[in-house]
Design a binder for these strands. Structure first.
Lengths: 189, 189
DNA sequence: TCTGACTAGTCATTTTCTTGAGTATGCTGC
DNA sequence: GCAGCATACTCAAGAAAATGACTAGTCAGA
């Protein structure tokens, strides 16, 4: 039941349409959760039925009309309750780790390629998150911003995203190197 | 469909019962995947029907009988295919991040407590993984082990687990500090 | 001697997530 | 002048994961 709370938390930053939310929750700016558009539309509908968000129609001339949602007081109360309840532990769950676990018994060629692609993707996210952080804190330096900034939630989760992607990139680079070396050592002993 | 491959990868280390697997996939030594016992039993049954693993009954005197599973050639081929296919990107998905995202609008007291608990738990995992890595590499130093070791898959995934937990711990400690400072600043301005 | 934890599972149900397809319009680039 | 992408959604179906409840014997400690 955390997707609903993720949606509520995302809507704290202002009004968003399902479509806008979907983009935030998808491409990778999703620094605190991930979900597909269909889930989000469904969740928004459910949240509205339960009165935790309210939507208003915005008529547009040149594009399809859209509905913007904001969190209601009941929604905020729900978030409050959620925050006070125990969290489920977080786990790594990654196809690529499964492949690396099996690396001694299978052909590592494709795995190495995927590690390198991942490293590049993670590097791009590192850049992106760095830029996002810079934008959010504006003029202030980080310490100062975190002490006195008004909206630091997204900044804090983005910090985690950044560290995660850095760790991911470093690991991918290192493991690709290790597996590559073992391959050449095997073929040319 | 990655649980099946996670199970196959786990069984590469030798024969395991569902119960043993469940422990590895649960408590947190699960450095490359996580699953509940029920899922594992179900998956093992399916894998056996499909001929990807084979189980043998082991009669025990003082404890309930058990079934030990090992990967078949077909299972290894399946893993091989899986490793060559594209991986889904990995995403962070963590209740606690959702709570931190909402931190500006809710009472941070419980969140701070949870961050500190998480930091402690992550610290314990860091210790555990460090110890596991030391055991796996034995006498050799890491570079040497990674160059010439026979079974390095679990070592490589454990390295990722270690880095993840370190990152998680550092972030929790830092964010708990930030939120704590803002609380005291607010009550005693 | 009773409680609780450990071994070793099974069964059923519900929730959540993913996949795939479809609608309709407008703008941009080749 | 049309292909392809962006906006803005909806519906249905299926796979995967989580939850809860249950069996049944062993062993250690209070």
């Amino acid at each position: 039941m955390a997707l609903r709370h993720a949606v509520l938390a995302a809507l704290l930053d202002g009004e968003y349409s399902g479509y806008q939310l979907a983009k935030a929750f998808d491409v990778g700016v999703a620094n605190f959760w991930h979900a597909l558009p269909q889930q989000l539309y469904a969740e928004l509908a459910k949240l509205e039925r339960e009165g935790l968000v309210s939507g208003r129609q915005v008529v547009q001339e040149t594009r399809p009309n859209k509905r913007l949602f904001r969190v209601t007081d009941a929604g905020l109360a729900e978030l409050e309750q959620f925050a006070a309840a125990v969290s489920k532990p977080s786990f790594i769950r990654d196809d690529l780790l499964v492949k690396v676990q099996a690396a001694d018994r299978i052909d590592t060629g494709p795995v190495i390629e995927q590690l390198e692609e991942r490293a590049a993707a993670a590097g791009a996210k590192v850049e992106l998150f760095g830029e996002l952080l810079r934008q959010m804190r504006g003029e202030a330096d980080e310490e100062e911003f975190l002490r006195r900034g008004e909206r630091i939630g997204p900044y804090l989760t983005c910090l985690r995203g950044l560290a995660f992607e850095q760790g991911h990139r470093d690991w991918c680079v290192r493991i690709a190197g290790v597996l590559r070396e073992r391959r050449t050592a095997r073929t040319r002993p």
